[in-house]
């Protein structure tokens, strides 16, 4: 009896939490939810700031042109969020071939991005929608997937 009540309370709490957070803003595209081009630029700059302190992943960027990486990352997020951009880079698999990226490094970069999204006040549902789309590239980026 008690458990049945606890279950009901949980279900009600989840339903309320979900509806309260999803119904308040009108339907927007992911691109709009990220703050359009300016928002994506700000997120990318926070992300680069986080990445600068990432000892695990930093060796991957030793030979990178950071301003070029910045432009490509912004472009990639814009395209991923169905923004008005056309993808300019190479295919994910080609870009990361031979870099020997580990799951640990991939995770550490995901966490840098989450920190950047948090720092820019991006709501949880928007973060999850973006991460869901980006996580699909895992197989193309990591050298020896799990």
């Amino acid at each position: 009896m008690n458990t049945a009540r606890a279950f009901l309370i949980t279900v009600a709490a989840v339903a309320c939490l979900a509806s309260c957070t999803t119904t308040s803003p009108p339907q927007r595209t992911l691109y709009q939810a990220l703050g359009e081009y300016e928002g994506i630029e700000a997120i990318t700059d926070s992300f680069l700031g986080e990445l600068a302190g990432n000892q695990q992943a930093l060796p991957l960027f030793l030979n990178s042109d950071i301003s070029r990486f910045r432009a490509q990352f912004i472009n990639h997020l814009c395209v991923t969020a169905n923004g008005p951009c056309t993808y300019e880079g190479d295919a994910m698999r080609e870009t990361h071939r031979g870099m020997g990226i580990s799951t640990a490094q991939f995770n550490s970069i995901v966490e840098n991005l989450i920190a950047a999204l948090e720092a820019n006040g991006v709501p949880t549902s928007t973060q999850n929608a973006l991460l869901q789309r980006l996580a699909r590239h895992y197989d193309e980026i990591v050298e020896e997937p799990f």
Binding site: A18, T124, S125
Partner: peptide, 9 residues
Amino acid sequence: WLNALFGRN
């Protein structure tokens, strides 16, 4: 599952 239910994991 990311973004699976009401924008939640």
